[in-house]
């Protein structure tokens, strides 16, 4: 369930859009911010706000990389696996993260603090390899640095 306040602000967003669909991505992102991921309930709510069927919301939600239709527990760690980070050995960083958190990509750590996903180029290639935890970027990663960051973010 979303609050009346959030519902109202989303309704407002839809009303000011040129067509309701234009607001679809914004509505999905706001609901995702609320729930942590786009739950089935959120899909239904988005549909009601936008005048779309749940399937029509699903068509959009599942297209985008950063709309999550599977549970995200705790903070989301996105670690870049694209070419610049690859050249800076992101593979090692990813393996290190998997080991430290004891998860596979897409999984959540046992303590519920982190969910680890790979992502494509984050546009911070000068700082490769990079990851983002929540909304915070971390660059020039080394295994040691990753340990410190996890400690801080935990």
């Amino acid at each position: 369930m979303i609050s009346e306040q959030l519902k109202k602000s989303l309704q407002q967003r839809v009303e000011t859009a040129i067509t309701p669909r234009e607001a679809a991505v914004d509505v999905m992102k706001e609901l995702q911010r609320h729930y942590g991921w786009l739950t089935d309930e959120a899909v239904g709510e988005a549909g009601e706000l936008l005048g779309l069927s749940p399937l029509q919301v699903e068509e959009l939600a599942t297209f985008y990389e950063k709309i999550y239709r599977r549970p995200v527990t705790g903070k989301l760690i996105q670690v870049c696996d694209s070419i610049s980070c690859w050249s800076g050995c992101c593979d090692g960083i990813i393996e290190h993260l998997k080991k430290r958190l004891d998860v596979e990509l897409g999984g959540s750590s046992a303590d519920g603090k982190f969910t680890l996903v790979p992502c494509c180029c984050l546009g911070r290639c000068g700082d490769a390899p990079v990851m983002v935890i929540g909304e915070t970027f971390y660059g020039n990663l080394t295994p040691e640095k990753v340990d410190q960051i996890l400690e801080k973010e935990r």
Binding site: S82, I83, C120, C121, G123, C125
Partner: peptide, 10 residues
């Protein structure tokens, strides 16, 4: 700007 390697617009 999502082309890997590109971050100029950011």
């Amino acid at each position: 700007e999502m082309e890997p390697g590109t971050y100029k617009d950011r």
